[in-house]
């Protein structure tokens, strides 16, 4: 995947239509080539956009993602190594790891590793195509606790457990913090409807 392909595909995938691209094209500056969408249906617009996409990917008669940054970095490294014996000293070899590292990062960022993305698509079956065998399921071991009676049992238990869990969840509430108590000046709270009985021995 190249950077333009990433941009276009991300726009088309996120918006789901080509409205954004149409807007961009219609708001292009004066003098720029304009494309009239008024007499086109969506399929024609899509095919036109795929033409633009393929045009954007071709630079100098060559597709952008036919080669990688690492390829170019290896060529540059070869040049740097080959000039050791000639005019330039091996001092410039220090740049090689940085060039290779940068090429690796660029390849990882801008290329998917699939040079055919996003096309050209083909409906031909590849020669090395091996159909994936479909794995069958064993009816006796499909449910971990077994089928039939056992399955019904565990289904009932799970239903009861879900009801219990919901009850406990609904009834759960956090306990409030205890009130701070001044123990020095603590006065025992009186019970409600307290009627003092007169003490005859009191002075």
């Amino acid at each position: 995947m190249n950077r333009y392909g990433w941009l276009m595909s991300s726009i088309m995938n996120t918006t789901g239509d080509l409205g954004y691209m149409v807007k961009q094209a219609n708001e292009a500056p004066q003098g720029a080539a304009r494309f009239n969408f008024d007499n086109l249906n969506m399929d024609q617009i899509k095919s036109q956009s795929s033409v633009w996409l393929s045009e954007a990917m071709v630079v100098g008669g060559r597709r952008i993602d036919d080669h990688s940054y690492m390829e170019e970095a290896l060529i540059i490294s070869g040049v740097l190594l080959s000039d050791d014996a000639s005019v330039v000293l091996p001092l410039d070899d220090i740049a090689i790891p940085f060039i290779l590292g940068g090429a690796y990062i660029l390849d990882r960022v801008y290329r998917s590793g699939n040079t055919n993305y996003p096309g050209p698509w083909s409906t031909d079956r590849p020669n090395n195509y091996i159909p994936r065998p479909m794995s069958s399921i064993n009816n006796k071991t499909f449910f971990p606790e077994g089928n039939g009676k056992d399955f019904i049992k565990w289904a009932l238990r799970l239903g009861g457990a879900s009801v219990l869990a919901k009850k406990l969840y609904d009834g759960f509430y956090l306990q409030p913090d205890s009130m701070p108590v001044d123990n020095a000046n603590f006065v025992k709270p009186l019970p409600p409807f307290y009627t003092p009985i007169p003490n005859p021995n009191r002075p």
Partner: peptide
């Protein structure tokens, strides 16, 4: 199991 069903 019957009790569970009844309770539910």
């Amino acid at each position: 199991l019957i009790v569970i069903v009844l309770l539910v």
